[in-house]
Design a protein around this nucleic acid. Sequence first.
DNA 1: CATCCGCGGATTGTTGACAATCATACGATC
DNA 2: GATCGTATGATTGTCAACAATCCGCGGATG
Lengths: 231, 231
Amino acid sequence: MGLTRVEPVNHESTSAIIADRLRLAIMDGDLAPGDQLGEADLAGRFEVSRGTLREAMQRLVEEGLLRSERYRGLFVCELSPDDVQDVYVTRNAIEQAAARLILRRGDRAAVADQLDAICEQLRAAIEVDDQPAVGRADAAFHEALVTASGSSRLSRMARTLLIETRMCIRELSRTYASPADRVTEHTAIAAALRDGTEALVLGLIDAHMADAVQRLAPDRDLHSPFTDLVD
Amino acid sequence: MGLTRVEPVNHESTSAIIADRLRLAIMDGDLAPGDQLGEADLAGRFEVSRGTLREAMQRLVEEGLLRSERYRGLFVCELSPDDVQDVYVTRNAIEQAAARLILRRGDRAAVADQLDAICEQLRAAIEVDDQPAVGRADAAFHEALVTASGSSRLSRMARTLLIETRMCIRELSRTYASPADRVTEHTAIAAALRDGTEALVLGLIDAHMADAVQRLAPDRDLHSPFTDLVD
DNA sequence: CATCCGCGGATTGTTGACAATCATACGATC
DNA sequence: GATCGTATGATTGTCAACAATCCGCGGATG
């Protein structure tokens, strides 16, 4: 039989699809931190039953994007300054690990090419001041980096963390003081992945994350204790 | 009002409880890789409705412990050699990050004391050759390490990874050639956390993970490419 | 006026029934 | 004898109704 590609057709479950939509809504800010997710309303919008919707929502609870209060409802998690710090500490761990994998077992040039292309999209979006596109390009860069590592577990974790990142940025509506820095920080990482030392790559990623914490939670930094500020 | 502790009583959702039970069952091998989770049967055992059980199962799907085939059922994920490698690569990233946090912002002595206590339990379990207790102590060590970092995100990720670790070990039923090594590897990490350099701590964790991959998937190592072995 | 009590509406949690699909066994056909 | 088509039972996916709980409001009470 001359079938070019014979793979099992894996029809995604409905709850998985709804979960994806919900993630998107949270990432885009259509569902803001603190918002309640009314079951009847949402089920109506998605045209599924409440049962199916609840299955999808439980996935996001597990992921840490939603919080559940019994008999009261499900809410989009709010991110404290501690959470902001934690998100970036964790991203630092995940993306450094991904970078190490690429350096040791990946096609560095191919990855760098791909990341450079995304940097170009990022530059273009900044040039016309299209903030949503800027955010998407930024997220795409980091997602591509982790995906290129080939680790499904790192990728899955990174997906959640990137959503939380967008939530932080949106809630605090703080962005780079000089947008040009945003491009150079990313191109530097891409360049180092192409032909830099491991120490350089890891240092640039660390600095990138530290920068973000500095912008989003100025009273702490990436490596400071969680909370010993007096209230 | 003289209430000593007034905290919101947060009744855990039923699906969260069932999800925990399922995780335990997978970790203990009561649900083995490849096993199908019949809904009617399980719902009966837990004395909940199928709907509630399905919500719990969707959580584990999100976590990557279960795999779903539409109209066919949910199955415990099987771990390929690539997965074994990926689990340990990811654990390496998570636990190294946790260790760095402890070194930079934690009470090193307190953490080391706690880990030493677990090492003692580990030693005792090995002495009487109680394999389940050995496994529990091993998992407890790494869970305590990550918990001590204070990062809720690292902790959540580690929980899943430790379950997958037990699955690997059980499925391959391979353990340490010399059980004594198992204790010394852990005590060495605890000691380094007490008063060693960061490089030493990270190196020991890396070696610990590399050792595990060596035992469980001898044809690869922690830093080798995923798969360029011919079939 | 502040507090407590209880009622009604609204929302969530749970359940059992129904529809869609799959797996298996059996017989027909070449 | 192997393959195809079909009927049958079992399992999953979906839904709508019922029970349990929460929230807000009005009224009673001190």
